[in-house]
Each structure stands twice: as structure tokens, then as C-alpha cells.
Design a protein around this nucleic acid. Structure first.
Lengths: 217, 217
DNA sequence: TAGATTGTTAATCGATTAACAATC
DNA sequence: TAGATTGTTAATCGATTAACAATC
């Protein structure tokens, strides 16, 4: 649908946050907002907001600012949330289950169509309204149902083999919760990583770094 | 303990990944590695690796490279993983439970000491070896047990009040899975966000952006 | 010693901020 | 029209890359 050229990944990472803030403004009944007001609410510069938005088009109006509702919709459209990419979840452990139950896939451009695990005990149980299927039947399933994306909630050790199978099946987009560095092995894929361990370690660093100020040297 | 000045957040974000790769090399029996070799393995430039490490000290040796084990330990130390910060989890829903069960807190500088929820059904149940406690008893608990950090797995709407209570109790460090922007309201705290919705939307953008190449304009 | 590779300074590149003319 | 605020160009700032002298 769209196709914006050379948008830096820093801009892209800010888009969901704009979307979130605008959604909140919308809920609170705002109809217009200037880049200046938004910048103070979000802790950014007005300049950055205008630069960011102008990567995708001129959504504002001089002397007025931005119409909250239409800007919200525009950003949703830029993000591609009006898609309905089919996604399969691999790994129905604690994390996989939480992701399946917790996320509103439909609001984010996805539809969860299958859940796989190799634990015989789990196979056949339901998560939301989706049965957990034997991982052995992955190929079978993917021949009947095209999977646009795979969500990987699997241990690092299991990842290489599973990703190879998925790649062979034509899956090119991954939401990766495992600590396997997929993108190092394939160059024709899109990967968005969620590295919880990394995130926790960064918190640890920041705590260690600030607690000094208040004490022991 | 440490206290490195003016380390850019981009460098900090790369540290856990260095740590991960070095750990893997260690497992595979490597004893030394040059910035050059590491750079090809990680998809970075050798220059960047050397620059990054030299923010914290000179861990290498000219003509030799880096000793894998000692560099691994150094980075662990820089990250502060040898700490044992006490953490409490707020919210024992799907996500909170998964985080509690899934993470190896001890390896990341933390120790989970309490889990709280306001759902009467959950109170008293055990997650790992920790009982779910009534959120009403948060103040009581925190007076007897110092909480260095809080993990927020709560709905956005519940967040403002809970964070206020935590802040009153002296909790200054947050691992935030909620979509409430804590850092906008307090300036004496450390927040590490995990925004799963944002991450999923970024994946959606990237898919939308690449799938054009292969089709519909 | 010769070869390799670091630590570090200098050059380049990209992203953020500032400024202002265009225009609603 | 006057005031406000955008879109966009120019200036600044910071991060990455290149280069090379120091040194193991």
C-alpha cells in the first residue's frame, strides 16, 4: 500500500508513541493540537515532530496546527494498522500464552490464526479461541493457511531449526521474543525483536549508574 | 558501584548484545577475539566496538585482541549484573505471570521478592515460590521489605495511582510494561519501558513497507 | 623484530534543533 | 488584515566510521 523511502528507523520508532498520544487526546475530546503543545506533552521538540510528520506528508495547516482525529488516522494508516496480516505463534509456554491472550492483534494490523507447540500435553488445549497445534503439523497448516508473520516465543536453542522451517514455508516476517539473532542468518526477512533480558539488563545498568549519586562510591 | 559519565544511551543499548555474543563465544570455547572478528559476527563495525568498549576502559591488548572471558565478565560488571536489586511485580495477569516465571532475575542483577494483585481470586496463589499478595498490603510489605524496583504489568488506567503509591514508598526504578508514560510525571526516577504494542506496530509498518516491493502499488 | 590489533584522534555522516518564509 | 503555526531550509550537534600511531 504505502512505500515511504528512506525513513530513518528513529522516526519509525517514534510513530507508535505519536499514535498513542493522539489517541489519548482524541479520547479526551481534543480536536486540534499544535506541534508546540504536543511537544511539551511528549517531551520532544516541536521541530522534531514537524520533521517527523513531514516525512510522510503535510498533515497540518498553517496558523491552525493539526486536526487530532485525522492525524491519528493518518499515522495509523502509515503504520499499516488497517492491514490484517495473518500471524502464527510458535511456542505456547508462559510467554507465548501471555502474548496470545494479552495483545489486541486486530488493532495492530494482525490476526492470530494459529498456535504451535511441541509439548504433547499442550496440544489440543485452547488459547483464546485457537487450539494449540502440534509443531509437526506446521508445514501442513501453512500449506492451507498463508502465514504472513510468525511470533517466536521459543527457547534460543530451538530457534535455528524452527526459523529454517518457517523460512522454507515462505514466512518472511518475525516478531522475535527468542534470543536468537535471526537477521544475522537471513537477509530477505523483517525482524522486530523483543529482548526482555536485554531490557532488564539496561534497567540494571541505569540503576547502578544513578544509585551512586546517593551513596557508596 | 560504578559511575561512568555521559555514556550515550545508544552505547548502553548495545551492551547487553555484546554480553550475549561473548557468552556464546565463551560457551563455544573461544578464548580470544579481535574487534574485527566480533564485528563480522555481530554486523557492526570494528571501530564501533572499540569505541563502545573504550567508554568504560581499555579491555583489549594490542596485537592480541580481547580475552573473551574477561571481557564478558567486565561487561557483566559494567551492566551491574553482580547486584541483587530487590524487585516487586505489580499485576499477576497473563503478562505479569509470564514475566515472573520466564525471567532469570538473578542472572540480570535482580531478585523478585513480592507479587501483588487486586484480584481476590489470585491472592494467596503461588507463582514460582512467591505468594500473590493483596495490593492493599503494598505499603505494609514495603515497610518491611525495601523494594529497589517495581515491575509494572498493569493496565494503563491503573498505572497513575499505583505509581504514585510506589513513588511515595520510595520506589525509584521501574520496569514498565504498561502504556502509561511514567517518566513524564516524575523526574527523579529511572524507567525502562517494554511497549509490546509499539513493537508490534513497528513490525506492521516494516511489513507494509517491504511487501510493496513484491506487489500491489 | 615483524605482524597484528588496540586505543584514540580526526573526518564523515546523519539526526536534531533553530530559523524563517509561506500561508492559513 | 494580523496572528499563529506550519513546511522546509540551514545550522548545530552527536554518533559512527576511518585512519593511524602506540604497543603488545
Amino acid at each position: 500500500m504505502h512505500k515511504y523511502q528512506n525513513i530513518s528507523s528513529q522516526v519509525i520508532k517514534r510513530l507508535p508513541r505519536y499514535y498513542r498520544f493522539l489517541g489519548e487526546l482524541l479520547d479526551r475530546g481534543f480536536t486540534r493540537i499544535s506541534s508546540r503543545e504536543l511537544s511539551t506533552k511528549m517531551g520532544l521538540t516541536a521541530s522534531q515532530i514537524r520533521q517527523d510528520l513531514n516525512c510522510f506528508g503535510g498533515f497540518g495547516q498553517q496558523g491552525y496546527g493539526y486536526a487530532v482525529k485525522s492525524l491519528y488516522n493518518e499515522i495509523g494508516h502509515i503504520l499499516g494498522l488497517d492491514h490484517s496480516y495473518s500471524a502464527i505463534l510458535i511456542g505456547a509456554g508462559n510467554l507465548g500464552k501471555a502474548v496470545a491472550v494479552h495483545m489486541s492483534f486486530e488493532k495492530r494490523g494482525f490476526k492470530l490464526i494459529g498456535i504451535f507447540d511441541n509439548d504433547k500435553q499442550k496440544i489440543g488445549t485452547m488459547i483464546r479461541d485457537i487450539p494449540v497445534t502440534d509443531l509437526d503439523d506446521l508445514e501442513l497448516f501453512c500449506k492451507e493457511n498463508k502465514a504472513d508473520a510468525a511470533i517466536l516465543c521459543i527457547p534460543k536453542e530451538a530457534a535455528p531449526e524452527i526459523v529454517e522451517r518457517l523460512h522454507d514455508l515462505g514466512v518472511r516476517n518475525y516478531w522475535n521474543f527468542s534470543h536468537f539473532d535471526i537477521s544475522m542468518y537471513y537477509d530477505d526477512i523483517v525482524v522486530e525483536n523483543v529482548h526482555l533480558n536485554d531490557s532488564l539488563m539496561i534497567l540494571c545498568y541505569r540503576i547502578s549508574d544513578t544509585s551512586e549519586a546517593t551513596g557508596e562510591e
